[in-house]
Design a protein around this nucleic acid. Structure first.
Lengths: 344, 344
DNA sequence: ATTAGCACTCGGGTCATATGAGTGCTAACA
DNA sequence: TGTTAGCACTCATATGACCCGAGTGCTAAT
């Protein structure tokens, strides 16, 4: 059996309707559509074919049909057309970024919020990795005896800081000197290479302080990994508005998974090489995610990469979600890029 | 009518049972208890009295009774006895803090986790305020032209940092100098007074850089406020396990309130003068909280104060919750205190 | 190939009935 | 006077019978 144009058209109509209503769609509903002039009986025959081909499923004999995951896959790959946002929506997004947002974290949080409130799904945003970014300065600030705060300033202005251990008895001036030497030697070095670069030379330059060099570099390196903590979540409870999550048990396990964040982190870091990644239902590795769909996308800030994602029911409005992510992702990139470039 | 010992005893039994089962408790259930040797009929008479006095309520004629909020208030104030944790539980808590926790945020997060996982309720922890703490050092690190990271090191080692604006064209050495002057003048000054202290003198010392001094101090001052972002939440979905939140609508609005965090922040900062604060149901200001109870407590790290709290259904196990909070709060205090004192 | 017609299926709502946990009241008892 | 046994009464919940309607599959006519 072949999937001809007419079957395609009918399948699309069914999916569109089901995305909207979440109730099985019957043959009459489709035959009544203005641009389909076929009787319900004909639709029934076609639907029967589509079911046989695996694109439709029947919850029970006397109900309408619902699209299978295979259908959504087909829809996303071939049928769906790129959606457009209205001017009002674009304006809304612009507005959301017009306030002074001076920190990366704030921008990321705001983005997650916009994304979830416009899509009505759960959204997540991972802040940009610092891997490809170049180091500009390291400054060690004494905090207490044996402990210092290492501040890392980069190319694009983003800073990270961690508490590291330093040898007891080191005073302010000594740390100052170490900061200087480190900065001099590591300036311009991509962050990912920090721990592996010209160590002998550094050791020589630092003479007496050499023993804690490795520790310091390792700590720096470790602090670069974003980790599940870098995931900003928003609209976690939106999912409760969808009838497929009326079941308490489902809702609970979903929310628990979300709360833990490591699954989300994995999802966001998995596919950073493609622009969009869409996982539909059972395509998800994680068991608790197998009845949602996850759409993730990447964004760039200079050489640095981050990602954002939306989690919703399998019958989510993929076209709109992708349009939103494209637009909002771009806005965020711009804000982050300007934030540092304009005053460099 | 008087609330004699026997009524008290019966009320306690009813509350204890209801906390456990969440179903209205009948007269027979109570009369069967080993340490109450009264017939169900007698209990019924007493229950009828207790209802008249406002301590019990009947969902409908043919059901048992449930304790009113007034009853919980009485219970908490007079009936309840201090609970004790088992040795195993104490060991568990100890274990949770045995890993190297080198940052305040990590300790706070861990505490929230322990609290929620041991109580099975939702927990929140607010990190310590820095108000009474004394300043030890300020260091400005250039980030990009016109922007610097201000690192604040205190007495007890806790650091905060914020991005602040500095005049364009200021170089590393100038900032270095400013840092020096600021540190010299503000050293030993309690953080809360930072913005109001000997400004003329400072201005004189900084001569050319004086114009951005106010900005800097204001920024520092602002960065000291913890704000809703400083609330660490854990076990938000635990509440879904309790039958009183089987209703989707309730669950949703509760979770939405929790997610926003500002209500929580308000709860945590409200009563910092008493050791424990217990708000039962309608005693809560916030509407979405009116069918939960909130128990908050304060903890100290040197001169600095923080707070932690638990949110659960009105029929929560107050005695256990308070025991947990007492013990876990103490453990956290110790960890935080040691973290800085031992190597000062 | 399409469509009208018709019998059939099955989930969901409504209604009546049964069940049982629990109460209130009264009368008897210590 | 306080306690208790007994009994009628209440009401939420469970169960089963029933109907309705949305939807299907199949067949025969166009």
């Amino acid at each position: 059996m072949e999937l001809d144009m007419r079957k395609m058209r009918i399948l699309q109509a069914i999916i569109d309707d089901y995305i909207l209503t979440a109730t099985p769609v019957g043959s009459r509903t489709i035959s009544k559509l203005p641009d389909i002039s076929l009787s319900s009986a004909t639709i029934r025959n076609e639907m029967s074919d589509l079911e046989e081909m695996g694109y439709l499923e029947q919850p029970h004999t006397s109900a309408g049909r619902i699209p299978s995951e295979k259908a959504y896959r087909l829809y996303v790959n071939s049928i769906m057309q790129q959606a457009r946002l209205t001017e009002a929506e674009k304006r809304f997004i612009k507005n959301c970024y017009s306030n002074t947002l001076d920190e990366v974290d704030k921008v990321v949080r705001q983005t997650a919020w916009v994304l979830s409130s416009m899509s009505k799904y759960t959204s997540m945003v991972l802040k940009p990795t610092l891997r490809a970014v170049k180091l500009k300065r390291i400054q060690l600030v004494p905090v207490s005896d044996g402990r210092a705060l290492a501040v890392i300033v980069t190319d694009i202005g983003v800073t990270r800081d961690t508490i590291i251990s330093v040898p007891h008895g080191m005073n302010y001036l000594q740390l100052e000197r170490v900061s200087h030497v480190l900065t001099e030697h590591l300036q311009g070095c991509p962050l990912q290479d920090v721990s592996s670069v010209n160590i002998p030379e550094l050791k020589a330059a630092l003479d007496s302080q050499r023993e804690f060099l490795n520790d310091t570099l390792a700590a720096l390196h470790k602090s670069l990994q974003t980790g599940p903590g870098g995931v900003q979540l928003a609209g976690a409870t939106n999912i409760l508005n969808y009838p497929e999550y009326n079941d308490m048990g489902k809702a609970r396990s979903f929310l628990a998974t979300i709360e833990a964040k490591d699954v989300l982190y994995k999802l966001l870091t998995e596919a950073t090489d493609v622009e969009f990644s869409i996982k539909i239902g059972a395509e998800n590795q994680d068991k608790d995610m197998q009845d949602c769909s996850v759409v993730t996308a990447t964004y760039r800030v200079g050489p640095s990469v981050g990602s954002l994602g939306i989690i919703g029911p399998v019958r989510m409005d993929y076209a709109r979600v992708m349009a939103l992510m494209r637009h909002i992702g771009k806005s965020m990139s711009e804000v982050l890029t300007n934030m540092f470039e304009e005053d460099r």
